[in-house]
Design a binder for these strands. Sequence first.
RNA 1: GCCUCGAUGGCGGAAUUGGUAGACGCGGCGGAUUCAAAAUCCGUUUCUGGUGACAGAGUGGGAGUUCGAUUCUCCCUCGAGGCACCA
Length: 868
Amino acid sequence: MQEQYSPRDIESTAQTEWTRNEVFKVTETPDQNTFYCLSMFPYPSGKLHMGHVRNYTIGDVISRYHRMQGRNVLQPMGWDAFGMPAENAAMNNNVAPAKWTYDNIDYMRTQLKSLGLAMDWSREFATCTPQYYRWEQWLFTRLFEKGVIYRKNGTVNWDPIDQTVLANEQVIDGRGWRSGALIEKREIPMYYFRITDYAEELLTSLDGLTGWPEQVKTMQRNWIGKSVGMEVHFPYDQASIGENGKLKVFTTRPDTLMGVTYMAVAAEHPLATIAAKGNPQLQSFIDECKRGGVAEADIATQEKKGMPTSLFVEHPLTGEKLPVWVANYVLMTYGEGAVMAVPAHDERDFHFANQYGLPIKPVVRTSAGDETPEPWQDAYGEKGELINSEEFDGLDFASALEAIGEVLSQKDLGAPRTQYRLRDWGISRQRYWGCPIPIIHCDTCGDVPVPENQLPVILPEDVVPDGNGSPLARMPEFYECSCPTCGAPAKRETDTMDTFVESSWYFARYASPHFEQGMVDPAAANYWLPVDQYIGGIEHAILHLLYARFFHKLMRDEGLLDSDEPFKNLLTQGMVIAETYYRLAENGSKVWFNPADVQVERDAKGKIVAARLASDGQPVEIGGVEKMSKSKNNGVDPQSMIDQYGADTCRLFMMFASPPDMSLEWSDTGVEGAHRFLRRVWRLAHQHVTAGPTHKLDKTRLDDDQKAVRRAIHLAIRQASQDIGQNHKFNTAIAAIMTLMNVLEKAPQASNQDRALLQEGLEAVVLLLAPITPHISHGLWHALGHEDLAVQAQWPVLDESALVQDTLQLVIQVNGKLRGHIEVEAAATRETIEAIARANENVLRFTEGLTIRKVIVVPGKLVNIVAN
RNA sequence: GCCUCGAUGGCGGAAUUGGUAGACGCGGCGGAUUCAAAAUCCGUUUCUGGUGACAGAGUGGGAGUUCGAUUCUCCCUCGAGGCACCA
């Protein structure tokens, strides 16, 4: 055994042995407990960042722990390889997205392998290969035929200068990021998944996901946004609008129907279009509403504006004429694109009505009374007894709902309805680097799905996009084709799919990644699925996780697999953050410096007070701790950390610095601390091993000090087992192992018993660390005299008898304040404990002149004496 | 704007069902070793007062429940993630 800890040698030796023995390659072995551990696969952006390292280390620790429990553990890896960055890189460097992507994959694969992950690399795939996306196209055609996919118009960000559709990310302050042009909303035809058909199941089956964080389930519930209410129709006729019809709205507060004083419709609503004819002022307002991007955050924060139309609709109960307004706060995409406004009881309507001088009619008696003077109070929104509502006066919410519903349905002007906030999923993208949508447009036959025997529709890979729309739309060799139904010349769809589609089913493909007869091999899929543990960033809490759940149900309904949900347990990791440093340039912009190039100065207490750039010694500003990013130049390159300290140190630091679901602040000195700890483990093991082999421990003949050491060993085993296996709190597991190391380093090594005890302690340390720092554990396990591989060793077993104590220390409080400690027999009765506590010197001192009112004894914990 | 989460020493963080606030690590300070340095080891380290024993305060701010609150309830402030075409 080498005297010095040398991560470079140890890590390459360990990785070579794992590869040679194919220890991480798994098969569908019957009758073995399986564990499918999946970390969200990376987008191949160029090189690994710390977020990846964190994600894959967490997954690896969990995988290796379960391996040591004897389970058949599948941990696969692949590449979410379609996406916009490849097109941007292509434009900047004049390289085809395909080549850029494949090069990145090759580089990042090498980086991942250097982390020593327990991956079955034989299952690797990239989503941009036809072998993968052909099955996505196949499913698309099936779902299209079933009607689960349909075509309708959707609104996109249109850049009028570049003549292209932009992603929300590419719209900055209402302008295109490259052209600087003011963005407009534009309607184009797109394909949609009917995810709303699954809204109810997506909602209710959340209840069964007991292994998901409550936070994520709450977010998904709110996103789906089920509301029970009523559809109400406001009739209009030839005389008032020029045609007969009904303005439909959805409301959750039909009890306030008598308080409606106006109607508000979205700018895109058909009534707005009718009203704008011959009204240039209104037309220009509608045009103004169409300016700016489609992102909800922008629409919701913009100033609330509206304009009256000359149109009126009838109140369904009273027949009263209600003015129709166009308002920018009404979303065409939610509900019916129109709302009935009840300014007395809805905050947004209240502000709007006050702004434009519209009438406000209170119809509910709330805790604020019968009137609703300015300013708005939350009480105005309460439910209560109806007032000013004619025959409905005096009714409460439930009976008003029933009574009003009854009248509406008699008049055929409304009915109860359930509404979801969730919208159908539009998947058409006017981009090149994505999975082609397998549809052929024929003048006679319409939209025809590409027949199975003509799949896949292959994306040409030698194309360099130029930022002016999709190059596919300009490639006749791609889009010219004949109709599969009638054989006439036809045009292939040139849009590609949202990249969320690929990441919605990759977890299932890993079960049979090379299967050529179908999307998945049902036997393999049912063997591994659902995923036992899924790990990824909290930023995916809604969209990706909801789409993956939806796809799983689609695949189930296609008969491809049996389970209802894809991910049994979910762990959402926090971000990796780091300090930022900058200087103000002359033009006022900030120039950011990487933490690696900055030196900090501290005051007497160690608090950081200033920072200087190492190269010129001049001060820089401290900008605060933020998510690692290119823009703030505060990223730390994982590769340089691995090169300097080794993968084990990097892994140990990341797992120790904070619990996985919290953000992790990068600290160079923390990394050094982790490295220092591994050196200490190595040194103690080296010292122990060079002193020669040990005898067997005689557990029946331990003195008190030896019992204390053995207790420390098994406390660490208990703590680490709970923390890693159940709670996923790797930081406290490591703290427990560190505490054990502190004990072992101080323990005597003279006698045979002492040395045997140290052997037991070191074996525990090595195995408890094995999931976290697998390379050093691999080396030390051999050094401690074991022939088998540490990865195949069994997780340490807790010996409860080692934890038993004869006496316990209890805390004594007087009036809740700590006043002393007492040592009592473990078996002492409540009465004995109370008597000892009452006789305690400090208790007597602090209760002098007071009367003891009560004594609370918490067994094994404390005694609180209440006196006054 | 809406939904969700978070806030504890100089710093990262720890604290079973409400029961000793600050485990473990980092940083700081003092010391040992060394010709010197690195490395390593030992001690100390929430704040305030006190030489000290000790006392008081303290978990973002404010109220409340309780013998007892970092933990439960209400209000507020600040920060983070998401908002459907970033992945």
